[in-house]
Simulated scan of single mutants.
Amino acid sequence: MTASLYLDRPSPVHRLNPVTKLVILLAIIVIVFAVPQWWVPAGIVLFVIVPAALLARVGRRLLTLFVVLLLPLLLVLVIVQGFFFPGAATVLWEWGPARLSVEGLLFALTTGSRLSALVLGSLVFVLTAHPARLMTSLTQSGMSPKIAYVISASLQIIPAFQERARSILLAQQARGLAITGSPVRRMRALLPLLGPLILGMITDVDERSTAMEARAFGATARPTSLALVDDPAAERITRWLVAAGAAAVVVLVIAGVIA
């Protein structure tokens, strides 16, 4: 079974066409980086991404990934920018070279909210869009199968990497590799994992390439999918409206209407 972060749930979010979810994700990314105010990405996280995760019943997994992946980065961002922001004018508290400033906190809040919207939105998409279904829907929409495969395979890189690393670690431990002790010893224990991990990933790429060639993946004729992904007219209209809304926001920002 292909490794991925996808969680199978009987939810309306899962039943959406993956292209629809991809267009919404891209629109969110465009809007949060186009609008300078911090409350826009924060509002998208609170009123769009979090409700979508709860509706999709992947909220617990999303919270775990947030704590593991994003929370440490946000804490470092607040500390570095809040206390060491260059050119700080309004200083709230000072101790040696550290100067807690309003400008630094505002910059950290803006960057952190944008990063949260980007990462959490992407995680909800990955957790609710099956890679195979995504590739089929992209191909049905007229995208080149090669580009569709690249997009679909990118959702599986990190989980596949983690799964292979876990298998190699268990195999090395069965051979007597000790991974406990001082931090230096733990770092040394990681070295025997790098060689098999890198060679294994290269072998996996070669095997996938051979399998794809055997299935005439590079043929000019468009393949026929065994299972089609539903794409109702309402979702197609929604995609166009979402894309038009994101484009309108960009135009308003450039025109100075949204400052």
Rank of each mutant, 00 (worst) to 15 (best):
P51T: 05
R188Y: 14
V257D: 08
A98P: 02
L16F: 14
I49L: 04
P145Q: 09
A89K: 15
I254G: 00
S113G: 10
V80W: 12
A52I: 01
I168L: 13
L106W: 07
A88W: 10
L63N: 07
V119L: 15
L120N: 05
V35T: 08
N17G: 08
P232G: 09
R175M: 06
L77Q: 14
L138E: 00
A219M: 04
F66A: 15
R166I: 08
V76K: 01
V76M: 10
S4H: 03
S141F: 11
G218S: 03
L73G: 15
S154P: 00
A160K: 11
V150K: 07
A216P: 02
A89M: 12
P36I: 08
I237Y: 01
L127T: 12
Q173I: 00
L228M: 14
A27P: 03
V32N: 02
F217K: 00
T136F: 00
S209I: 03
A255Y: 02
G121D: 01
F217T: 00
S116P: 07
L191N: 02
R9I: 09
A248Q: 13
I168C: 12
Q162T: 07
A248C: 12
V32P: 01
M1L: 10
L155E: 08
T111S: 15
A117Y: 04
A108E: 06
F217A: 02
T238W: 14
V30N: 08
T20I: 06
V68Y: 11
T139F: 06
Q172S: 12
A221V: 10
L65H: 11
V76Q: 03
I151N: 09
L106Y: 05
A117I: 04
V184H: 10
L92Y: 02
S137L: 01
I24Y: 09
A174T: 01
L63Q: 09
I44C: 11
P97S: 09
L118Q: 03
A211G: 09
I179Q: 08
G96S: 14
L138C: 00
S144R: 13
L26S: 13
V253K: 09
G104V: 07
P232M: 05
A247C: 08
Q172W: 05
Q172D: 03
F66K: 09
R61H: 13
I198P: 00
I237V: 12
V58P: 11
V249R: 03
G200N: 02
G200S: 05
A165G: 07
